[in-house]
Design a protein around this nucleic acid. Structure first.
Lengths: 202, 202
DNA sequence: TAAAGTCATGTCAGTTCCTGACCTCAGGGT
DNA sequence: ACCCTGAGGTCAGGAACTGACATGACTTTA
C-alpha cells in the first residue's frame, strides 16, 4: 500500500512549513483568531509537533532571532582595533543593516511588523528579544575592553538607535536604505545630548 | 445565620488582598508554582474574581504602572518654559526618582525585581510597560514643541537612562540615592556620544 | 542480514490561563 | 416596598501548553 514514490514517512521541512502556515494564517485572519491547531493542520502536522519545534505560539515568528543578534555581535568583532564604544555600536548596527535588511526585505519586514503591531503578546516577545540583543551586545563590548557600565550604555543606546531607525525604515513612504536612516538617527541622538555636537541640518 | 457584627457580604479591599497574596506567594514558592486559584483562595476569593480585577496573572504585579508613568509626564509638564529636549528628559526621570523611589522603597524594589528577574513572562510585561512609558513621554515631548523624531529620541533615551540608573540603584551594595545615579548615567551617556562632552572622572 | 537504536511524529490525558453567561444578594435611592 | 447597581460566585468551555507513551522509517552495529 502507499503510492508510487515518496515512501517517506514524513515530508521534510516541518519547521519551515509551520512557520509559513503560521504567518499566512496570521495575516489572513489575525493572530488571536488563529489557533495552534489551525497552524499545525495547515502544515499537515499535529498541535503537539508544533510545540516540539517552537517553545510557544509566539515564538514561531521569532525563529532566527539569535542569528540576527549574532550579526550585531559579529559587527562588533570586526570593528577596527582601537575603536571607541560609539564606533563599536555603530559597527554593530551598520553590520545588521547591511547583512540583514537589504531593500528587498523591506516589504516583508513591513508585513511582519503589521502583524506584530496588531498584537500585544507579540510586541512583548519582540521587546524580550531586543533585551536579549542588548545583553549580547553588552557582552561583546565588554570583550572589547569596555567597563560593565560603559558597555551597558553603549549596548542600550545602540539597540535604541537601531530600533528607531528600523521603525522609520518601514514607515509608509520611506524609501531611504536603512543604513542612511541609521546615520540620521545617530546624529539626532548626538544632537540631543548636551555637549551638542553640531549636526548637518535636515 | 452569620455572626454578630460584620453583616457585610464581602470584606473590602479585594484588589489589595489579591495583590498582597500574589506577591507573597510568588516570593514564597515562585511565580510559575503559584496558580491563580492559589492566589484567589489565599485572598478568600474566586479565580473568576481575580480576573475581574486584573487582566491576566502577570498584571497583578503591575497595577499602578500608569500613575507611575504619569509621574514622568508630570515632570515634563513642570519643566521650565524654554527647556531643551535633554532638560525635559532629565526633568522626567528626576521627577520619577523623587516622587516614586525614595530610599525607603529600595528594599521593596529589590524584592519585586527579584521576582521579575526570575520569570521571563514577567520581564516581557515589564518591557511592555516601559514601551508604553516611552510612548507617553514621546507625546509629552511633542506637546512641548519637539518634532516627532526628536521626541522619540528624547523619550527612548530618557527611559533607557532611567532604566540603567534604576538597575544600578537596586544592585547589591549600592547605597547612593537614585537621583545621584541618574546624573551619573546621563553623564556616561553624554560621554559615550561623539562630540564627547567632558565628564567628571570616576 | 537481523537486531538494536535513533528520531521525528502521533496519540492521549491533564493542567493552567482566561472568558462568557448567568445567578446572588447586600446597600442605596426613589 | 421597589428596583437598580455593583461586587462577587458558579459553571461550562476554549485555547495554550506538558508529560508519558506509542509508532514506524531510517541508520547503525553485530
Amino acid at each position: 500500500m502507499g503510492s508510487l514514490c515518496s515512501m517517506v514517512r514524513w515530508e521534510p521541512g516541518a519547521k519551515e512549513r509551520l512557520q509559513l502556515a503560521a504567518i499566512t494564517l496570521f495575516v489572513e485572519r489575525g493572530y488571536e483568531q488563529t489557533t495552534v491547531q489551525d497552524i499545525a493542520a495547515a502544515a499537515g502536522l499535529t498541535e503537539r509537533t508544533f510545540f516540539r519545534h517552537f517553545a510557544d505560539k509566539r515564538e514561531v515568528l521569532f525563529v532566527g532571532s539569535d542569528v540576527y543578534a549574532a550579526t550585531f555581535v559579529q559587527g562588533v568583532a570586526e570593528a577596527p582595533e582601537g575603536a571607541a564604544p560609539f564606533e563599536l555600536a555603530t559597527a554593530a548596527i551598520t553590520a545588521a543593516a547591511r547583512d540583514f535588511f537589504p531593500i528587498e526585505r523591506r516589504a516583508w519586514s513591513r508585513q511582519r511588523q503589521a502583524v506584530l503591531d496588531a498584537n500585544t503578546p507579540l510586541q512583548e516577545r519582540e521587546l524580550l528579544k531586543r533585551a536579549a540583543l542588548s545583553d549580547a551586545l553588552t557582552a561583546a563590548f565588554r570583550e572589547r575592553g569596555a567597563t560593565e557600565a560603559d558597555a551597558r550604555v553603549a549596548a542600550e543606546t545602540g539597540v535604541t538607535a537601531f530600533h528607531l531607525a528600523f521603525r522609520q525604515w518601514i514607515a509608509e513612504g520611506e524609501e531611504r536604505p536603512l543604513l542612511e536612516i541609521e546615520q540620521d538617527v545617530l546624529a539626532r541622538m548626538a544632537a540631543f545630548m548636551p555637549g551638542a555636537a553640531s549636526v548637518a541640518p535636515d
